[in-house]
Every structure is written in structure tokens, then in C-alpha cells.
Amino acid sequence: MLEARLPSAVTLKKIIDAVKELVQDANFDCNDSGIALQAMDSSHVALVALLMRAEGFDPYRCDRNIALGINFATLAKVMKCAGNDDNLTIKAGEDADVLSLMFESTNSDRISEFDIKLMDVDADHLGIPETDYSATIKMPSAEFQRICRDLSVMSETVTIEAVKDAVKFIASGDTGSGSITVKPNQAVDKKDMEVTVTLQEPVKLAFSLKYLNHFAKASTLAGSVTLSLSDDVPLMI
């Protein structure tokens, strides 16, 4: 069986909000090291990979490997019923057909319990090789989210061009064009505000802004984001 408790429900709320528009149904693969998810969107263009390590829960108990088939739209609705600061406990029994969630307010005067029916999910797990990327860009995640949103007014596509001292995001459409250039700024106080460009060779690649806007929803999870690019290899964010 699985039993895992998170001190703040907000962590799972943010994760589900970031994933729910890309992934309809997927398995939470649970074992004694934690809870993992690998899922593609329905058009097989985008892959979400997530690992919640056992150390992030207290307590965490998983006796044997189990795959919990989750409908993310349902889980997202249930997670909206949790307060950000609530304790969250998730449980699934042996051969369980439900995932149980319990939200407990900080002073324990309100306890909510929900069961979500589990599904059989056929998982297409991809074998992704280690890649040495031509360019790696680190920047504040809020900045990345804003760039994707701003350039969406011009085009459905963005071209990301990384050169030695800058990265340029370019969008060009029927009504005009726009570009945003971000330069490295390593002398900042806050690590999350840092911008770095690590380059093996210059790259220039185009991507659908629809997917980048989906990925940018995960910016609430971390202060900084890393973009890794190479010719003929999917962008890793």
C-alpha cells in the first residue's frame, strides 16, 4: 500500500495545475523511492516527467511498486478543495480502485476526505538518451513565462536563437513581428534572478508557443528555469 503525507497541499496543487492541461490521464508510478510520472500530451508532442522523492513526504510508505491511473481533470478539481496550508495525506491500498486524499487544516478543526476512482492507463514510456546540448539557458521562470505570453500576441511559433552573449526569442506573424533579447547578468543578488547562457555552439530553433505556454505554467514551482537546446533534438525545459 501507499501512504504519503505532504506538510502543505499547495505543492501538489501547483504540480497538478502545471500538468492538467497537457495530460488527461497518466499513472503515478509509486515505489519506495517516491512517486514518478512520465506522460505525453494526446498528440505526443510534449512529455511531462515528474519525480516527487520520498524525502519530500513525512511519513512516506510504499510497500511495493504500484501504478495509480489518475484522471488529472478530476484530481485538479479535488485539489481545489484543499487549502494551501492544509496537510495532505494520500493513500491507496493493495489492489486499490481508488486514491484517497485527506486535507487537514493547520489547527485540525477541518478534515476533508475525497476518493478518486483509479483508471487503467496504457503508458507509452519513452527511452530518452542522455544528451549534450548545444546551448543551455538559465533564467527566472517568471521571465520565461512572460516572454512566451508576450510573443503569443504575434505568432503561434517562437524561434529561440542562442548566441555567445544573448538569447533571442523571435515571433513573426501575419500582423507583425516581435522579439525579446535576454542577456546574461551573473552579478545579481538573488540566485533565481540569474541569467546564464552556456554555449557549445550557436543554435536557432522554432517551437510552438502553445506548448511553451503550457510548460510555463510550472513556473510557480520554481524560481528559475533551464532551457536546453540542440539541433534535431526536442527542447528540454
Partner: peptide
């Protein structure tokens, strides 16, 4: 604009 390629174009099943 260019169409995004399926990930199966790059990565095989595990």
C-alpha cells in the same frame, strides 16, 4: 508556422 514533430520521431519506446 512549423508543425511540432511527434516525440516518437526522436525517442523510441522504452
Amino acid at each position: 508556422g512549423p508543425k511540432q514533430q511527434s516525440l516518437f520521431t526522436y525517442f523510441g519506446p522504452r
